[in-house]
Write a protein that binds this DNA or RNA. Structure first.
Lengths: 139, 139
DNA sequence: CTATGTGCAAAGGGTTTGCAGGGGA
DNA sequence: TCCCCTGCAAACCCTTTGCACATAG
């Protein structure tokens, strides 16, 4: 049983076939799918799942802290599974739309330090970098 | 003549009364108003300005690099005048909704350093911290 | 005078919700 | 069985757009 199924059981939420499917789709996604994409992937497994259920389930999972909603530029939300052990940030290639994940202890520490200096306890944050590929041969 | 009026002249854009009013409202705003708020403030000066004009003008000013669109949590865009000399970040108090601005050369440098290490030239970035006030008397 | 800009209302796109029926526990 | 959950379609909210009129240059 995976994390998401465990969490449903703990919170006494019903483990419906839709929730299992959406959980599975999220686990199998290594990219950062938006709702439409998640809906399409879920529908490959069960074509009767409605998009309203996808939205409701994503909101539920997000509130349970199981997934993370990204707001990368566009108006549409994107999602990724939340892994406490794998805190990372995103860099978006503005030419190709590719998303590069990276980790940085230095950045993590600095965020907390700054919040503390301002008299706050850091609860969450949002950081994305947008850039273009360096043309190395220009040197 | 302010920055915005100068920019319109340079780009051969018409300096309509609506654009002047919206430019003035932006200059006079020290908070981070959303479109609805900007629309209300502009309407106090000229009640005939339509919200479509506000949207179109904000998009125009943003493209000219005169203002900056913030996407702080909510679905609605917020705006602030862009001042190259005053690059700053935002920390949102999640209990009150207050926004604290701060500067950090360290953070600025780190963003560029990370992008460069990943093989990218940093073009822009989005960073917000969300936190709660530290209760100092707890110590 | 003419092309650009405006106001209005309708359309768009993503997300949420009311309701009646369905299915886990 | 009982209540939570789902599917559908309509509603919502923010933003954009088509069109006819207005106006800056």
């Amino acid at each position: 049983m995976n994390n998401i199924e465990k969490a449903c059981k703990e919170k006494k939420l019903k483990l419906t076939s839709q929730r299992k499917i959406i959980a599975k789709v999220l686990s199998n996604s290594n990219d950062h799918p938006n709702v439409e994409e998640l809906y399409a992937r879920a529908n490959k497994i069960d074509s009767k799942i409605g998009i309203a259920t996808v939205y409701r389930t994503l909101n539920l999972f997000e509130q349970l802290g199981l997934i993370k909603r990204l707001e990368i530029g566009e108006r549409k939300a994107r999602y990724e599974e939340f892994q406490r052990s794998n805190e990372h940030f995103h860099l978006v290639d503005i030419e190709s739309g590719n998303i590069v994940e990276f980790q940085s202890r230095e950045l993590e520490d600095l965020k907390h330090k700054i919040a503390h200096q301002l008299g706050f306890k850091l609860v969450s944050s949002r950081l994305e970098l947008y850039g273009t590929l360096l043309k190395k041969n220009k040197y």
